[in-house]
Nucleic acid binder design. Structure first.
Length: 310
DNA sequence: AAGACGAAAGTGGTTGA
DNA sequence: TCAACAACTTTCGTCTT
């Protein structure tokens, strides 16, 4: 196992790293950056196969999960059915405990319970993988704990968390898609997304146009060659610095459009624009840039000539 | 007739004073 | 907080297939 230990804070270079094993986080004491989340638990895992007291060292149980509002570990203080066993002294104690437990749990847990139901709904609507759903739930849980939901609607924070989780796992859905699935305005999703990621110190890698290709390509029913050609074009485009600052979907759409032309699988600009959620004009602009900088015109002409022969 | 192209004006978000 | 700005959209007229 080659697990690299982080010794310096990548943000400020400080060496005052605080390791919180319970939360699985490493936090820089100097600048507050969350250096590493969900780190591996390095404490000794006790395994004991053949001694008599092995039972007590075994760790079992259902896997812990963030999509369960109490992470599947909730405790209920007593059931009414137990009451008949207790004397009056114990009954008092019982009620005090129950009240106490009720107080501490309500606010946050009730919120989580509702929110995670919504999260699951949206997630399944978008057919997101389980890992993304988990990540989103984790992000949302953190957000609630830090009181970031105050003043925002629960749904919008859910949508923001999901969007962030998608980005982190490189299974990008567009803001439009999230907006549609969650019934939250696009700009609101974007706003809470930015807010949540900033407040939680989640590093956001700029989304890569190539990640969109596969999905767009399949909804346009393009061949695998066209798809890989599009990725190829994208790589060249990135080297020519055509991608920075532009919307990733527009670039992906244009690359796919060109690639389709080259392989004689023509799609109209409108068709491509629709699946990518951009306008024809944007595709045209990107398309024009691609032709100019990447010298692709000859490839297109080739396929045109071929067609004439047929 | 449908699609491609381009110009011009409008929109929402970022940035820097 | 405001203005400048870039990316993107909307709309519309013209050209091409």
């Amino acid at each position: 196992m080659s697990q690299e230990f982080i010794k310096k804070c990548p943000e400020c270079g400080g060496i005052n790293l605080f390791i919180n094993k319970d939360k699985g986080e490493v936090i820089c004491k100097d600048c507050g950056l969350v250096v590493e989340e969900k780190m591996v638990d390095f404490t000794q895992e006790w395994r004991d196969f053949d001694s008599d007291d092995g039972e007590s060292k075994r760790r079992t149980g259902a896997p812990m999960t963030y999509t369960q509002y109490d992470q599947g570990l909730g405790t209920e203080v007593g059931q009414k059915a137990d009451l008949y066993k207790l004397g009056s002294k114990d009954k008092n104690k019982f009620f005090r405990l129950r009240k106490w437990q009720y107080r501490i749990s309500t606010a946050i847990e009730r919120n989580l319970k509702l929110a995670l139901a919504e999260l699951k709904r949206v997630s399944s609507y978008l057919k997101l993988p389980k890992s993304v759903e988990e990540e989103a739930a984790r992000i949302y849980t953190l957000a609630v704990q830090r009181g970031l939901v105050r003043g925002r609607s629960m749904e919008s924070v859910v949508a923001g968390s999901l969007y962030a989780a998608c980005r982190r796992h490189e299974v990008p859905r567009t803001l439009d898609e999230l907006s549609e699935a969650s019934n939250i305005e696009k700009k609101e999703v974007g706003r809470t997304y930015r807010f949540v990621t900033r407040e939680l110190g989640i590093t956001i890698l700029p989304s890569n146009p190539a990640d969109y290709i596969a999905r767009f390509s399949s909804s346009l029913r393009l061949s695998a060659e066209t798809q890989s050609k599009a990725v190829e074009i994208l790589e060249k485009a990135q080297k020519a610095e055509l991608t920075s600052g532009r919307g990733p979907t527009g670039i992906a759409a244009a690359a796919l459009y060109v690639s389709a032309l080259i392989h004689g699988e023509k799609r109209t600009q409108r068709e491509v624009a629709d699946v990518a959620g951009v306008t024809e004009v944007t595709i045209r602009n990107r398309y024009k840039e691609l032709l100019e900088k990447l010298d692709l015109e000859k490839d297109i002409k080739k396929t045109k000539k071929k067609k004439k022969k047929d």
